[in-house]
Write a protein that binds this DNA or RNA. Sequence first.
DNA 1: GATTGCGGGCGCA
DNA 2: TGCGCCCGCAATC
Length: 397
Amino acid sequence: MLKGADDVMEQEDSSSRHGEMTSWDINDIKLPQDVRQIDWFQEWPDSYVKHIYSSEDKNAQRHHSSWAMRNTNNHNSRILKKSCLGVVICGNNCSTLDGRKIYLRPAICDKARQKQQRKCCPNCNGPLRLLSCRGHGGYPVTNFWRHEGQFIFFQSKGAHDHPRPETKLEAEARRSIQKSQTAFSPSSPKLKRIHEIKSLTGAMPTREALPLLLSKPDAYLLSANFGGRLSKSSREPMLGSSSGQPPYPRAAGEDGDSGEVPTWSRSLALGKTPSTGRPCHGPAVPVANPPCAAPDPQQCAHPGTQLVLPVTEGGHDPFRPNAGPLGDESCEEKSLLGYSSSCLPPPPYPVPRGGGQHHHQLSAALRGSQGDGGEGGRHMGLSYCNDDMFFNLYPLR
DNA sequence: GATTGCGGGCGCA
DNA sequence: TGCGCCCGCAATC
């Protein structure tokens, strides 16, 4: 199935960019050991890419991916194979106030996933639907991990044909908040304060009130460090000790993968920053009045405290013509997300491939809501961001 | 409770 | 034989 195309793409990836560096296949009996450059850990590997990580890289050690990847038995104990589970979407195809879609992270465990699909959309209370990944010849994208000596070889086969789900940390945060919602009674002082603020601002507080509900605020900072560049483990690829000539990590995105915006930006976009700044008055996170076609919006358990994570940029270029079974949805999703509501300015650096789409989305956001979509309030622009946020965030880089 | 890794087993091409 | 997938188990978080 599409074997030929796969091979071509792999050839392109492997030979044209790094020469001998990636002229290997995960199934090779012998993998290169003369690695001079190792890669930053890629949180969103996509397409037919290969990476060589340091065996010291914690994320690589744990075979992390922000895609929801489940273990697949390939009957080869030397090569760990994982296949993509896709993304959980709202069956109502609802949008948040600022036009973002619901892209939940599928539970990895089968039972948990079934249980998850019985739950309702956190935004409109509609049914959830699993949008499975078919980016590899109609089958899920597969990732392969292989530990060889001081390196961890990674190979991805297939291009995700669905939006990015929320990251693991985001999913955990969402669960924490949902737990918090049930833990707090309506008369809870914290909830009361949230409602007060809401009544004052017309929008949910994000940076002040939400942390009160979060059980693990540190997780957000962790999330910010999950991305390659900021990851401690990635910043310290400790390979020089043995080779004498340290194989410095290649730049993210150089290998033709998603080259995504650093995770911190997404995390910050989620209102995950510590409450150091003033509240961002954008529709950054919560949805007070979900503009969805829910059967009965009042079914929402706690409409005022629903946290609808922007989840991902969603703008993942897989919104290509073959965007899968949800043709119409994918159309609409093209205009999604981006920085428009993230309280975060665009990265001041050229973003590679994957990031390019973010840049593109941002440009669209800056242009306003022209083009597709056109739903009111979808692109709220950067006026919602405050300058403090801007200047406080960039030093993080 | 959820995630992760492992391995047995089955069906298909 | 390779691949995709299901299932169960154990360890871990």
